[in-house]
Design a protein around this nucleic acid. Structure first.
Lengths: 183, 183
DNA sequence: ACACGATTAGACCGATTGGTCCAGTGTCCG
DNA sequence: CGGACACTGGACCAATCGGTCTAATCGTGT
């Protein structure tokens, strides 16, 4: 019976990630996730024994993996950090355009406004540091000194997060396309 | 009976703003706000006939006004845009340290994950553009051309929003203090 | 002293929340 | 064929959600 394009678990993670990005952890109920994913309640608590929090962690991890792949795909063909950064911005802008709706960073959406949990904050930070480390790796590969690479990576990360916020508030992905990225 | 430091309405706005900043619009219930503010339910719906959404708008407006004052206070004595920007960053870092807890931008916290997407988004954008306009005004006053002033203002805004996110995820206000602000 | 609008106080409401539980339905391996 | 096990379906639950309502109380001008 499982000739569906994705497994139930995968569908749950994807729709949860999308909804959390739009309205945050507390802004989305499990009923809505289940309805959009076309799954019954039993499935959720089978695949994610700890329920909503478990699903949010999985969604954040999944979204973070996608972001890491996007970063790698943008920087691998680049010949300078600035070029890779600009490519990344354009890719993210395009993703925003395609989704049709305006959400926030999928990681902070899923985790930041959760139950005042310290564990959620720690996972958020872990994922963010993963992005920064990936950016740092490419900066160093493209000729920056270790110190400069770290600085460039953090700088670009903050611009991206801030740009995401402004783009969402304006409903305009061009904000991302014209981001003043470090060279 | 009203020798309290602030009126009930003011207390509601302040505690709502603080809580929304920590856990977002949907992450905070009216019961919690009322308890922390020491107000009964009747007061809320007397001062804010539309209830929680009304209160969130008021909280966001109040927080935005505070931010505008902080921007003005930082840039007025400055002799260059970079100097004003650095002062602003230090002031915001200090505010984060004093609050003891790590929240997000008070405007996006109160409004971004709300139920009525479009109206909330429009207000968020209105307030954000107010910040950018204030920054732009000071940039121009301190010698930048109109085009450069606009660019510097948006650039600083995005760095601040992104820096806020990273500072929160790391629980470290030094992120703000070392922000690579435009000159 | 009185009246009157502004405000407070909190009981109460239906809807929705996240979560539990178990009977069914496969699917695969002996 | 027959268990074993992974998964689905949904009824059901206590708790909490935002919101309404009315009675009491307050402050103030006359």
């Amino acid at each position: 019976m499982n000739e569906r394009p994705q497994s139930t678990k995968e569908r749950l993670i994807r729709t949860a990630s999308e909804l959390f990005r739009l309205r945050g952890y507390s802004g989305v109920g499990v009923a809505e996730i289940l309805q959009k994913a076309g799954a019954p309640k039993g499935s959720l608590y089978h695949h994610f024994p700890e329920g909503k929090a478990d699903l949010a962690r999985a969604a954040a991890n999944w979204a973070s993996d996608g972001m890491l792949r996007t970063i790698a795909a943008s920087f691998e063909p680049a010949t300078s950090f600035g070029e890779g950064a600009r490519t990344l911005c354009h890719k993210l802008a395009k993703l925003s355009d395609m989704s049709g709706e305006w959400g926030s960073c999928p990681v902070s959406g899923a985790l930041f406004d959760g139950p005042d949990n310290e564990a959620f904050r720690a996972l958020t930070n872990h994922l963010f540091e993963g992005w920064i480390a990936e950016l740092e790796h490419h900066a160093q590969r493209l000729g920056a000194t270790p110190d400069a690479a770290r600085q460039k990576a953090e700088h670009l990360f903050m611009l991206l997060e801030g740009g995401w916020t402004l783009a969402r508030s304006r409903s305009d992905s061009d904000v991302l396309r014209t981001l003043p990225v470090p060279a």
